[in-house]
Design a protein around this nucleic acid. Structure first.
Lengths: 171, 171
DNA sequence: TAATACCGGTTGCATAGTGCAGTCGGAATT
DNA sequence: AATTCCGACTGCACTATGCAACCGGTATTA
């Protein structure tokens, strides 16, 4: 947890990039966050992008060191590890939404995998907050507000609709 | 300009990371965008983070290939190249703002280098739009709306105030 | 006209990170 | 007792990064 590193500069954007500036870190966070993948094997096997096991291992370690992810034993299975997001990671929701919005606008996204981004984009900061509250309930054990009708569920539903309408592709 | 690459997946976040997912690309864009650095030597020498010349060269080439940056000869100086942002890059403003906001909240930022992030964060989407309109005027030659009293100037002013009040650090 | 400084890079080289395939010891299941 | 599942680790080839030196052409200066 000690971060005795040397920073390139004190610029917020630069510091953020020193933590997140590679091609896998945010993908792993995305999978935990939106895909609710909490175990190593899940993250490894159900990864859209096919992350390699050593890279996943390395990223999970990094993310843990940076305080974005915590790791604990699953009480039911002694050998199974449970990865959870911290508040620091949950507050990346706006970053991921904007990144997704930009990708949707300018890159060759697939309909199935971008519908969730669209829902969050259209929902605006209010929906993001609801989603973040949900993540806090799931990952931090914060009691959920009763009025929340699961943004996660809403995202899954939108995804299913597109898949059912479209036809092909994995996911 | 032909992009015959293989993509890891059609997910918007993943595709965005395939373009921007390294520690330098967004730093270079930040310098062009907020620091108004338009020439190679400027980007190289006035870089807070001390980017290496080969990395800068490689990133400018990549960014050009991805359609985020254009390069043209400065009419005044035959050998001088002028780098400009495209609309695709200008629309990264919300991403950079959110990334900066996150950095400000969780990372050891310096006051001088984070005041601009704070102003943009506090200004909200409306200010971002004004800033983007300004960038279009500067980089795309779009005529500026008259009511715009320069967000860029506002950011510079806020920066100067912090520097004058604070005292040390480079910038 | 000659020397110098500035321009946007390139090259060589050592180190670090990525990607793939195979492997590992322990725990749970059969 | 044998097999499968668990979260990784190892070896290896390849690519990217970071540093320093260097480059030919252009503009400026003496």
């Amino acid at each position: 947890m000690a971060e005795a590193e040397q920073h390139r500069s004190g610029c917020p954007i630069n510091l953020s990039l020193e933590v997140l500036g590679d091609s896998w870190s945010l993908v792993v966070i995305r999978d935990i966050m939106f895909g609710n993948r909490r175990h190593y094997r899940q993250l490894l096997g159900e990864s859209e992008e096919g992350i390699a096991s050593n890279i996943l291992s390395s990223r999970l370690k990094q993310l843990t060191d940076h305080g974005l992810v915590t790791k604990e034993q699953d009480p039911a299975h002694k050998q199974r590890q449970l990865y959870s997001l911290t508040e620091k990671a949950i507050q990346l929701v706006p970053v991921l939404v904007q990144l997704g919005a930009w990708g949707r606008k300018f890159l060759p996204v697939s309909p199935e995998l971008s519908i969730r981004a669209k829902v969050l984009e259209d929902g605006g900061p209010q929906l993001w907050e609801r989603f973040m509250a949900e993540l806090r309930a799931v990952h931090l054990g914060v009691p959920a507000a009763q009025d929340e009708s699961s943004v996660h569920h809403e995202l899954e539903q939108a995804y299913r609709e597109v898949v059912d309408a479209g036809g092909d592709s994995s996911g």
